[in-house]
């Protein structure tokens, strides 16, 4: 991977992490976490682990959906 793409992925991870720490609203926290996961993907694909990338891409939304069930229960 060349340097600019790596720097962009690191910036995405740092932005997602900082926003997930700072935000108070649970939905904003989930959006920040999905920025963080988007930054992790180029590192997985660059090493050639495509099967790991497919598995992560399918598991990450499921974990978000399970977390959303808790959010809905809190809001009612």
């Amino acid at each position: 991977m060349n340097d600019i793409v790596m720097a962009a992925s690191v910036i995405l991870i740092l932005i997602g992490m900082t926003a997930a720490i700072i935000n108070r609203d649970p939905f904003d926290k989930l959006i920040s976490l999905s920025i963080l996961i988007a930054g992790v993907f180029p590192f997985i694909v660059d090493r050639g682990f495509l099967d790991v990338a497919i598995a992560t891409a399918l598991i990450a939304p499921l974990s978000t959906i399970f977390t959303l069930m808790v959010c809905r229960r809190v809001k009612e």
């Binding site: 999905s34 993907f41 497919i54 891409a57 399918l58 939304p61 978000t64 959906i65 959303l68």
Partner: peptide, 18 residues
């Protein structure tokens, strides 16, 4: 192609659920 499509569909599903 499968990895890219899986990532895109997963991310879309996440936004849809949120």
């Amino acid at each position: 192609i499968i990895a890219a499509a899986a990532y895109f569909v997963g991310s879309t599903l996440e936004s849809n659920a949120i």
